[in-house]
Each structure stands twice: as structure tokens, then as C-alpha cells.
Design a protein around this nucleic acid. Structure first.
Lengths: 211, 211
DNA sequence: TTCTTCATGTAATTAGTTACATGATTGA
DNA sequence: TCAATCATGTAACTAATTACATGAAGAA
């Protein structure tokens, strides 16, 4: 979804600038801490995108020096705040998921059971690691050392989403590992337990049952 | 993750060709039915990527006609099967999530409460719609009209992941809507309930608690 | 017969990543 | 003083999307 040359990534950066002014390097750190969990982007974008915002009049750049070293700090303009509010007024699009590890499970009948187990184990470890990162950020907030206490209501909502997501991934991986361990060495010879599909169908019907 | 000019998308197509030969158009339909839930790609990729596979000797193209109309069907080669098996032997990478709707909630203190509610409502509707699509595919399988019964064990695992994901998104949206409805019209004046953060922290600690 | 949808592609553009470069600061 | 890593960027490349084009089949 883009409007007038600005992409969602542009608005993600603009939103951060609405919180406070940042240098590009500080933005990369914020990416690691929070934004990257819902809108991951390469470091170089964080140097490139603020310039586009400046070009559009939505931000200003201020050259500073730290020690004898130059750096550029970006801050939002009033026009930028208006543009951000307009962007927020349109509902955002739904989650987009790309999951290579699951793709390998999906095609696991063309490989070995051990390969499938390895992919699932990697997923489990990924979920655990992400949860650990979230937990350490959460610990800081619990200890009152959170960066932006005035934004706590917004953080509450987003943190709950990402932690629930990581938990769900981890639980799936535990379950899937148990299933695949019972497969024969050649997964194309595996037999499906009808109860699995039945339970999945119950769950999805419940989720589709509206409101 | 790529190897020798082939991308994950290349292998995703190659995996489908390992199941049976397809034309590009048939691949687009399969994208809608299954693969697109975990590895979404634009239609044009499905016309472009098989040609790369042919160029690499991993697939062959067969020109057919339907009525008086030409079409190209792609099928995997033995070399393609070996390449697929090698790819499957490496664990895949973890899920990558991009979620613009959540981004707007994250920055909702710079907009209106109603805008935040609209974004959350759109997310709830998205989750319901995705679940409904999954349910209808599930119904077909339950009725024994599933396309590839021999791949049921693999479908069991992937279907469970995506349906649980949609359910989790829907439950989050329901919960978040309830929270935001209690906010004042200006979300920057909202007050955080400490219990929310505490509960999130409990959940994430449980998920991080290893194995 | 006309309109719509199905089906098959190609071309142009772009958003994003990977790789590279380099000076400053800090600690051993 | 040497190495590591912190910090700040640029350049080259590419994977992917969007937009376009077009003929065939089926419905009204």
C-alpha cells in the first residue's frame, strides 16, 4: 500500500520520528528492539528512507557532531505529523507471512524424515530465541526502565501480538516434532491420523464463526 | 536463502512440480489454495520461475494445446528431484512477519482512537475471511475430495500451522478491540493496565522457558 | 453477438537486500 | 598501539510487483 511515492516503510520510519528525533544508527537499534518484529527491513533502508522523507518535506535533517565525528539526526515536521495522521486513518493491511521452514515441511515427502525433523527443530529454536529476546525487553519495562512509558498502551497491544505469535510458533513446532517422530524414515510412506485433520477443521471453523 | 541462482521461490515451484506437472495457470490456482498461505508470490513469478528451472535442467517444458490454444506444462526432471532433496536437507529459516495493520496500532498514539479501532476491525475481518477459506478447503478434504490424499501427512502439519495462525490473529483482534474501546478519543491520553503487560510477560517467559 | 471471465504471457518499474567502504572509539 | 566493534554511510544488484496485452471459451 503506497501513496504518492511513500511506502509503508516510509511511514514506519515517519512514525518513529513522531516519537522523537533519531539518527539512522539509532533507528537500526530501534529496529532490533521493536519495529523489526512487525516490519523488518535491512539497515541500509534506515539510512535511505529518512532522506526521502526530507525530500517530501515530512522531516528535517540536522547535522551534529559526536566527538569529532559527524552524524545526521532526523526530526518530523508538522507536515509530517499531518501525513502520518492521514496514513493512520486508513486501515492497514493484514499480516503477511513467509515461512521457508514450513515450506520444507510441506514438501517433506520428497526428502527424509530427519530433514523434516531438523527443520522443525530449527523452528522451535527460533521461537524460543525470539521469545527470549521479547522477555528481556519485557523485563526492562517491568523494572521501570522502558524507553517510552507514555507509549505503554500501544506497546501493550503490539507486544501481546508478537509474543503470542512466537508462543504459537513454538507450540506448533513442539507438536509437529512429536508427529513427525512417529513417521517412517521415508515420509512419503507416513500415514495421516484422521483426528489431526478433524481437530484442525474444528479449530478453523470456530475461528471462521463470525464476529 | 539462495544457492546457485535459485531462490526459495524457485524451490517452492520445484516442490510443486515434484507433486505433479503443472501449467503456470494451474500453479496460480495452487497458490491460492495452499502454497500462498506460507509463501505468497505474484502471478507473474509463476510464469517466470519455471523457465529458470528449465534453464537449470531441473524441469522440462512440454508444449500442449487446449482446444486451439497453446499452453506450456512443466515437469520435474530427475536432476530436479535431487536438487529438491538437497534443498530439503538444509533446515529452512524461521517465519517472517510483515503486518501493516499492527504498525498502525503501534503508532496509534499519533492518530485517533477510531482509526485504531478501524485497523483492528479490518484485522479481525481478515482473520475471519482467511479462516473461512481454510475451512472450505478443509471441508473438501473431510468429504474425501482432497486433491492429493497421499500428501495428507504433510498437509496436516501445514494446515494446522496456518489455521492456528489465523485463529491467533483473530483472537488478538477481538481482545485488542476490547482494550481500545476503553481508550479516550485521543489515544495518547490512554492509560495502560499494568496487568496486561504482566500477563504478556508471563506468556513470553513460558515460551522462552526452553526445550 | 457481445460481454465477461479464463488463460497465457511480457515489459517496465521498484522496493529491498547484499556487499562494500571507512573513520572513530574503546578496551586489552 | 593494535584489534575489535561502533557508527555512518554508498553502490551495485536482484527479486518481486504492477501494469499491460491479448486471444479463447462460455454465458446472456
Amino acid at each position: 500500500m503506497s501513496t504518492g511515492g511513500l511506502t509503508t516503510t516510509s511511514y514506519a520510519i515517519l512514525g518513529l520520528l513522531a516519537v522523537k528525533p533519531w539518527s539512522s544508527y539509532e533507528l537500526t537499534q530501534q529496529m532490533d528492539r521493536s519495529l523489526g518484529h512487525l516490519w523488518p527491513r535491512a539497515t541500509s533502508k534506515l539510512y535511505e528512507e529518512p532522506k526521502k522523507l526530507v525530500g517530501a518535506g515530512l522531516a528535517r535533517s540536522v547535522d551534529e557532531t559526536v566527538g569529532r565525528r559527524p552524524r545526521t539526526v532526523y526530526q518530523i515536521t508538522p507536515k509530517g505529523r499531518r501525513a502520518l495522521a492521514r496514513w493512520l486513518d486508513e486501515p492497514g493491511s493484514g499480516p503477511v507471512l513467509e515461512f521457508e521452514g514450513l515450506l520444507k515441511v510441506f514438501f517433506s515427502d520428497h526428502g527424509s524424515r530427519d530433514a523434516a525433523l531438523a527443520s522443525i527443530a530449527a523452528t522451535a529454536e527460533w521461537a524460543r530465541a525470539q521469545s527470549a529476546i521479547s522477555a528481556s525487553v519485557g523485563d526492562e519495562y517491568e523494572a521501570g526502565r522502558g524507553r517510552f512509558p507514555e507509549r505503554q498502551p500501544q506497546l501493550d497491544l503490539t507486544a501481546r501480538f508478537v509474543t503470542d505469535f512466537y508462543a504459537m510458533v513454538g507450540e506448533w513446532a513442539q507438536w509437529a516434532a512429536g508427529v513427525v517422530r512417529e513417521w517412517p524414515a521415508d515420509p512419503s510412506r507416513a500415514v495421516s491420523d484422521p483426528e489431526v485433520g478433524a481437530e484442525t477443521l474444528r479449530r478453523v471453523r470456530r475461528a471462521a464463526g463470525h464476529t
